[in-house]
């Protein structure tokens, strides 16, 4: 067997993350770089796109091409990027505030458009960057200074929505389980079409209760399926802490009309030739 071409450290930039000590996002960064090393594509062939929030700082912490977009619009940006440069591996990084609140609408349409990219949402069930407001995935009874008595609102269920909207790959992992997260990310990137991976990533500053997640997450009891109806039935019994791949579908990914030949960017290069 040949030695791997890249190490995880090849995908890590020299910028130190400014996340709080103990933040789950450090682990997500490790899983991402390990998965990229396993995939073996050069950093220059990978684009990491994000919106706004703690999670969205991640492009600068990688050595890949980075695009720190605007709040909630990472998926819209990524669709534009991927149709213009289908040769790139596109990783879209978001959080529960960015991706499900202000960007919630884009999530539905990215799932149904099924452009070949991987959407990773680092879910900590709180707005961390603006210091602790409840997010769409926050439990309705989470009592805090900024949500006295809890919001009383039904939480957003990302996996159900992804499945119902047509995502081609749906999974959940826990940031602390780097091995499983890495494996799932590799599978997600390799699977054609729109892949969605929710990574439960504790916010130790505003949700210290989430330190307990390491004890409450558990591998799903049922194997993955390519049948959306079976996946839907399984997700109905989900307690929110099941991890693993839920669904791997066979829907054909979106094809760009002009330049969608993976690896062939000759027409684009010709167009930009000076």
């Amino acid at each position: 067997m040949n030695a791997p071409k890249f190490k995880a450290s090849d995908y890590k930039s020299d910028i130190d993350p400014i996340w709080c000590p103990g933040c789950g996002d450090f682990h997500v960064l490790m899983s991402i770089t390990k998965a990229l090393a396993e995939l073996g594509r050069a950093p220059k062939d990978i684009a990491v796109v994000s919106g706004i929030g703690c999670s969205s700082r991640i492009p600068a912490y990688t050595n890949c091409y980075g695009f720190h977009g605007v709040h909630g619009r990472s998926l819209a940006l990524s669709a534009g990027l991927k149709v213009a440069r289908p040769d790139l591996t596109v990783l879209v990084m978001s959080g529960d505030g960015d991706g499900f609140s202000i960007g919630g609408n884009h999530f539905l349409h990215a799932c149904r458009r099924n452009v070949d990219m991987t959407y990773v949402v680092m879910d900590n069930r709180v707005y961390g960057m603006t210091k602790g407001q409840p997010s769409p995935t926050t439990e309705p009874d989470w009592d805090s200074a900024l949500s006295p008595g809890g919001t009383g609102l039904s939480p957003f269920h990302p996996l159900v929505i992804a499945l119902a909207s047509g995502a081609n790959f749906v999974a959940r992992e826990f940031s602390g389980n780097i091995k499983a997260s890495t494996r799932t990310l590799v599978e997600a990137v390799n699977h054609p079409g729109f892949s969605f991976v929710e990574i439960l990533s504790p916010c130790v500053t505003f949700r210290p209760d989430e330190k307990e997640w390491k004890n409450t997450v558990h591998a799903a009891q049922v194997p993955e399926t390519d049948d959306p109806a079976r996946a839907a039935r399984r997700i109905m019994t989900d307690d929110g802490m099941n991890t693993g791949i839920l669904y791997r579908g066979n829907r054909a990914p979106y094809r760009a009309q002009v330049s969608d030949k993976v690896g062939d960017i000759a027409p684009l290069e010709a167009a930009f030739e000076v």
Binding site: T130, K131, A145, P148
Partner: peptide, 19 residues
């Protein structure tokens, strides 16, 4: 209201006063 730096302290204070 929706939070955004550097407006958020207005939001926070209003929640506090309301509480």
């Amino acid at each position: 209201l929706y939070p955004i730096t550097p407006q958020t302290p207005i939001f926070e204070k209003l929640i506090d006063l309301s509480e």
